[in-house]
Amino acid sequence: MSRDEFTQLIKENEGILFKVSSIYADDTESRKDLYQEMVLQLWRSYPSFKGDSKWSTWMYRIALNTAITHMRTSTKHKVLDPLDHSIFDLTEQDNSDLEERLIMLYEQIKTLNRLEKAIILLFLEDKSHAEISQITGLTTSNVGTRISRIKSKLKQKMQH
């Protein structure tokens, strides 16, 4: 794959990077850092992309691994800012209702641990259990169990 193709694929799938960075990083600066780190990591890893899986599956895997590792190291050194509206900098349309609901959604997701965040992100992306398993490295049955746990966890939080 040439560099042109790589950049093109990144451009086509940059929504994935935005969503991953917005889930794992809490402030604009960290999100930018993480976004950049994910692109660099994809750039470094893409020679090893064999085409066994879909490009987006591979991209999720690298992006989520990078996010989990990156946030593990960066949170040791800094206190994260509370959730801010700049998550939605990328949305151009004026849709305050959607924005409000997304803020609520993100607030719920922020309460989950790193792996749960990855699973809920993929669940919201409508990925099948098999795909989530392929991306996270968990078994399909484990994915099912974890999704059920996350669902009840979120349900409980929403009721409070």
Partner: peptide
């Protein structure tokens, strides 16, 4: 906000993102 609403909001956000090519 239940999970279906979460999924709906997420899907709307994804649609908006797909329309944008912001990789600088």
């Amino acid at each position: 906000m239940d999970l279906d609403e979460m999924k709906l909001a997420w899907s709307k956000m994804s649609d908006q993102l797909d329309k944008q090519k912001k990789l600088t």
